[in-house]
Simulated scan of single mutants.
Amino acid sequence: MIVIIFSCLILYAAKPASTSCPLEITPNFVLVPFGGSISAVCKSLSSQLKGMGWESSFGGTGLVKGVSNLTLKIDSLQSWHVSPICFVNLNGSQCTKDLPVTVYNAPTFSQPTNETLTLQVGSQMSLDCSASGNPLPEYSWKMPYTSKVLTETQSVFNSSFKHPGPYECTAANSQGTITKRFTITQAPRPRRTLALMLGLFVGLAVMLCILGYFFVTPQGTFSSKKQSYTPGSATSAPV
């Protein structure tokens, strides 16, 4: 008999304590746009409570005594991350329950909507189409030199500049789609380069004139032994 009682005591001591919390939150999760409002009610299912409250960076209430249900109210949520927690103080213990919150938003660009760039051919081209949003946006690009749409996970397109024209970027998620346009024009060649090329052409022309003066005969043939010649005068002939 003593052995049976002792065994029962061991089994009771080894039984894990209940991990359930007598709290009920309605709704049990929230989907809200950035800047939107939240309203959720936390209700205690136990009558042995001393107080309850909401812990939250927005709309938190702290401990409130003498109530069995409490409302979390946020008029305008200005954060992408918020984790409200409802808690209840029971006799000698406290339990909590989380309210999952997902903040979503359509994509918005971090830079001006449209841009115009002037680049030299062969220079590095970097087009920034960065956008914020939740879920994270996906990007696609339309190029002036192809009809194919390039799908990218990166928000910045880097390439060597070869083709002027319109480059169009689209950022999209489940909440919306926005488009940004880059107009790329080709910069004129620097004046120094043009002057250098003109100088080379002039120098080549002068050199050809000099060579013609010394090595082209009056008959229009080329000779490295050109003699002086006066029109109408006799030329020397071998005897």
Rank of each mutant, 00 (worst) to 15 (best):
182 F>H: 04
193 T>V: 14
181 R>M: 11
178 I>Y: 09
186 Q>N: 08
143 M>E: 07
164 P>L: 00
136 L>H: 11
174 S>R: 12
144 P>F: 09
148 K>T: 11
149 V>Q: 03
194 L>A: 06
181 R>W: 07
189 R>P: 12
190 P>Y: 09
158 N>E: 07
146 T>R: 13
190 P>N: 12
140 S>D: 06
183 T>E: 05
153 T>I: 10
160 S>A: 11
189 R>G: 10
168 E>S: 14
193 T>E: 15
164 P>G: 01
139 Y>Q: 03
156 V>H: 01
152 E>W: 01
167 Y>V: 01
162 K>P: 01
184 I>D: 02
178 I>N: 11
151 T>Y: 12
194 L>E: 04
171 A>T: 06
141 W>K: 05
138 E>Q: 14
153 T>M: 09
181 R>A: 08
186 Q>L: 06
149 V>I: 10
159 S>Q: 11
166 P>G: 10
160 S>G: 10
179 T>S: 14
184 I>S: 03
148 K>G: 08
142 K>H: 10
186 Q>M: 10
179 T>A: 09
138 E>M: 13
142 K>I: 07
191 R>K: 15
187 A>G: 06
138 E>A: 13
163 H>M: 09
172 A>N: 13
188 P>L: 02
156 V>K: 06
194 L>W: 10
155 S>I: 00
176 G>I: 01
146 T>S: 14
162 K>G: 06
188 P>T: 04
190 P>C: 09
159 S>R: 13
173 N>H: 00
149 V>A: 01
184 I>A: 02
190 P>S: 14
157 F>G: 06
139 Y>R: 04
181 R>I: 14
179 T>K: 11
158 N>S: 12
153 T>F: 04
140 S>P: 09
187 A>C: 01
153 T>P: 07
150 L>A: 12
148 K>Q: 14
191 R>W: 13
174 S>W: 07
188 P>Y: 03
194 L>P: 03
185 T>A: 10
164 P>Y: 01
174 S>G: 03
180 K>S: 10
135 P>D: 04
162 K>L: 06
144 P>W: 12
150 L>S: 13
148 K>H: 11
178 I>A: 08
193 T>Y: 12
135 P>I: 03
137 P>W: 01
190 P>D: 13
140 S>W: 06
161 F>E: 00
145 Y>A: 12
177 T>R: 15
150 L>C: 06
186 Q>P: 05
167 Y>G: 01
181 R>F: 07
146 T>F: 00
191 R>N: 13
190 P>F: 09
151 T>W: 07
143 M>P: 03
139 Y>M: 02
159 S>T: 14
150 L>W: 08
145 Y>P: 10
170 T>C: 02
162 K>E: 03
150 L>G: 10
169 C>Q: 06
136 L>I: 11
181 R>K: 15
156 V>W: 01
174 S>P: 03
140 S>H: 05
137 P>V: 00
187 A>P: 04
175 Q>K: 13
195 A>K: 15
158 N>Q: 11
175 Q>A: 07
171 A>V: 04
160 S>E: 08
172 A>K: 15
